[in-house]
């Protein structure tokens, strides 16, 4: 594992902690897209099917369990927690995310490394992760104002993707056989989706102003 990969995993972990902190400390999930959180739950469940078949390291196993557990916990809170669910922006979070699930699954059926149950589900999870942030970005854009913790959540998620790209570049030059083009292409698409958000985050940070996204 190289430093970029580790930094990516850590920013991913921090983003989840920021999200949990927001929900538990403020007992509110306003500004958070349930659609995006459900997509992440599906992404992790589909990708980590190998939990039962391959052991890579304690680190990998623990992180996988944390990602699955935290995404399901957030979905549970937003749907069922007596207090938290009241603040859910139901009327704004209307992205039809099941189309993304269907589209990504179809793509995975045709574009994969090998036609097997695990490889198809792995490719599906990679494609779905690339677009899973869309309902969240659209929700933020529609509501305009972004509270600090929600802004930081999305910022850390974007940073995680950026570090993974550096990780692939590093691996490309240091490992003999590193070709994971499905991850790399999807990862580039995913990171590009954050470009707009990064831009406005930077502007608001520079002006020391509250983050606002243009409608």
């Amino acid at each position: 594992m190289n430093i970029f990969r580790f930094a990516g995993d850590m920013t991913h972990l921090i983003s989840i902690l920021v999200l949990l902190l927001k929900v538990y400390a403020t007992k509110s999930c306003s500004g958070i897209s349930l659609k995006t959180q459900e997509l992440y739950g599906i992404v992790f469940l589909a990708r980590y099917l190998d939990l039962f078949t391959d052991f890579i390291s304690v680190y990998n196993t623990v992180m996988k369990l944390v990602f699955i557990g935290s995404s399901l916990a957030i979905v549970w809170c937003m749907r069922f927690h007596r207090v938290v669910k009241r603040s859910y922006d139901r009327d704004v979070d209307t992205f039809r995310h099941y189309f993304l699930v269907g589209g990504c699954f179809l793509l995975a059926l045709f574009v994969h490394e090998k036609f097997s149950f695990r490889e198809v589900f792995w490719a599906f999870s990679i494609y779905l992760e690339a677009v899973a942030i869309l309902p969240q970005l659209i929700l933020l854009q529609r509501s305009g104002n972004v509270d600090n913790l929600t802004g930081q959540y999305v910022l850390f998620l974007g940073a995680y993707r950026g570090f993974y790209i550096l990780n692939w570049i590093y691996r490309y030059f240091t490992e003999d056989q590193f070709s994971r083009w499905i991850s790399c292409v999807s990862g580039l698409v995913q990171t590009a989706l954050y470009a707009d958000f990064f831009y406005y985050y930077f502007i608001s940070w520079k002006n020391n102003a509250k983050l606002k996204l243009p409608a």
Binding site: R5, D9, H12, R47, D50, D54, I56, N60, M63, K64, F67, E113, K114, S116, R118, E119, W122, Y164, N167, R180, S183
Partner: peptide, 10 residues
């Protein structure tokens, strides 16, 4: 080498 590529990333 296993038949399927072991995915070592998260």
């Amino acid at each position: 080498v296993s038949e399927e590529d072991v995915k070592d990333e998260l």
